[in-house]
Simulated assay, not measured.
Amino acid sequence: MGTPHSMNGFFAVWFEALDQDEPTVAFEIRNGRGRFLFMMFFDPEDEKTKDKLLVFLQSTRYMLKLKLYGAHDRGDFRIFLEDWQVEKIKRELQLEGGEGPAFDIAKFLDVLNASIPRSVPLSTKVKLLRENRGAYQDDLADILDFHKRTELIGERQLPPEKKPRERTLRKLYLYSAQSPEDVAAYIVDLKRRNCTVCWREPEISD
């Protein structure tokens, strides 16, 4: 399985996402020559993405798909890295040449863990996910309902026993023409009114 590493710095942003009813996490950390985009997409009814952590290595354009282990509600977040994944991180940092001191993945992850923000506004998440949609294009089927339906039709009022599905509202992050700030405010308003949004597949012109 590889070597376990604590990433308990995730607790604050993970808890914030749950507490504010916006179960999506996205933030970027720069370290040396590397740029690391962390993404999590989760909600109570979504088993496919539960505990799944996507780490996009921006400079080398490679996606690491990791699982977060541990009792998250108690602040326990752990990842396991295989040797080949460590090599991908070294390449992102441009350290694969073998010069300089030996690379210590444990120390590097400690620094990365300490750099995880404690809070990320929804508008910032929207902006990051919109700018990097191509990075997780292959994962859209797991994180969106009917991922090929990308043309917004309008709103639909839900009955009291239902609530908007996160996998549907996330499409506003990616396909709305509004600013990230306006999208964030609109999603809050939709949830307040217990409304969802409807989508269809774009028509293909001849």
Score class of each variant (00 low, 15 high):
2 G>H: 03
3 T>L: 10
3 T>N: 10
3 T>G: 02
4 P>Y: 06
7 M>F: 06
9 G>S: 13
9 G>V: 13
10 F>W: 10
10 F>T: 07
11 F>G: 00
12 A>N: 15
13 V>R: 04
13 V>K: 06
13 V>Y: 02
15 F>T: 09
19 D>M: 13
19 D>W: 14
20 Q>E: 15
22 E>D: 14
23 P>T: 09
24 T>V: 15
24 T>G: 05
26 A>W: 02
27 F>W: 11
28 E>Y: 01
29 I>G: 07
30 R>W: 05
33 R>I: 06
39 M>H: 01
39 M>F: 02
40 M>V: 14
41 F>I: 05
41 F>S: 06
43 D>I: 01
43 D>S: 13
45 E>V: 13
50 K>A: 11
53 L>Y: 09
54 L>T: 05
56 F>V: 10
56 F>Q: 01
57 L>A: 13
58 Q>P: 06
62 Y>G: 04
66 L>T: 03
66 L>C: 05
68 L>H: 07
69 Y>I: 10
70 G>S: 03
73 D>R: 11
73 D>S: 13
75 G>F: 04
76 D>C: 10
78 R>P: 08
79 I>Y: 09
79 I>N: 12
81 L>N: 06
84 W>H: 14
87 E>N: 07
89 I>S: 08
90 K>E: 11
90 K>S: 06
91 R>W: 12
91 R>T: 13
96 E>N: 09
99 E>G: 08
99 E>M: 10
99 E>T: 14
100 G>D: 13
102 A>Y: 04
103 F>E: 11
103 F>Y: 14
104 D>H: 10
105 I>E: 09
106 A>I: 10
108 F>L: 05
108 F>N: 02
108 F>Y: 14
109 L>S: 08
110 D>G: 13
111 V>E: 15
112 L>G: 05
113 N>Q: 06
114 A>K: 15
115 S>C: 14
117 P>Y: 03
123 S>H: 03
125 K>A: 01
125 K>S: 02
125 K>H: 00
126 V>A: 06
127 K>C: 03
128 L>C: 06
131 E>L: 06
133 R>K: 12
134 G>A: 07
137 Q>E: 14
138 D>G: 11
139 D>A: 13
139 D>M: 12
141 A>Q: 15
143 I>D: 10
144 L>Q: 05
144 L>N: 07
145 D>G: 05
150 T>G: 02
152 L>C: 04
152 L>R: 11
153 I>R: 14
154 G>H: 09
155 E>N: 04
157 Q>S: 11
160 P>E: 05
163 K>I: 07
169 L>P: 00
170 R>W: 07
171 K>D: 02
171 K>H: 02
174 L>M: 03
174 L>I: 02
176 S>A: 04
182 D>I: 00
183 V>E: 01
185 A>F: 00
185 A>E: 03
186 Y>F: 13
186 Y>W: 09
189 D>R: 07
194 N>D: 09
202 P>D: 06
203 E>I: 12
